[in-house]
């Protein structure tokens, strides 16, 4: 891999300044959307076992649809509810895939 990287480096350095036609870094707004999406995914993975699938997925979808996707509040709420509680029960009951429940006692008592 190291050897191939060196060959590539030599190849790229040798080519006569033909810059790629696309810019590598996106504009600020685009970069913001990319970083927020990645952060949301990391937060989702990090908090899923603690807050439970339903609450984390609900917040995840609210953030993605409302903030990044600029959808209306009603549509966002319906999709977030279906995507969190709906998917939790569907996967648990029909597909035998238990999605994590909250480990915080207060949330667990609420059925989350």
């Amino acid at each position: 891999m190291g050897g191939l990287s060196l060959v590539w480096l030599v190849q790229v350095s040798g080519s006569k300044g033909s810059l790629p036609d696309t810019v590598f870094l996106p504009e600020r707004l685009g970069l913001g959307r990319i970083l927020s999406t990645i952060a949301a995914l990391v937060a989702m993975a990090g908090f899923m076992n603690l807050l439970g699938f339903q609450l984390t997925m609900f917040l995840f979808l609210i953030f993605l649809l409302l903030v990044l996707g600029r959808q209306g509040i009603l549509v966002t709420l319906i999709v977030a509810l279906l995507g969190s509680a709906g998917v939790y029960h569907m996967f648990g009951r029909f597909l035998d895939v238990p999605l994590p429940a909250a480990t915080i006692k207060f949330l667990a008592n609420l059925g989350l």
């Binding site: 999406t37 990645i38 949301a40 995914l41 990391v42 989702m44 993975a45 990090g46 899923m48 076992n49 997925m57 995840f60 979808l61 993605l64 649809l65 990044l68 996707g69 600029r70 959808q71 549509v75 999709v79 995507g83 998917v87 996967f91 597909l95 895939v97 238990p98 999605l99 994590p100």
Partner: peptide
């Protein structure tokens, strides 16, 4: 704007359900 959120949510559930672990969600990210 609506579709991408739903697709991402589906990917998270898909990655998690392979071995019931959030580790796979991190690997996917």
């Amino acid at each position: 704007g609506l579709l991408f959120g739903v697709i991402l949510a589906f990917m998270v559930v898909g990655a998690y359900s392979i071995s019931n672990s959030t580790f796979d969600v991190m690997v996917m990210t």
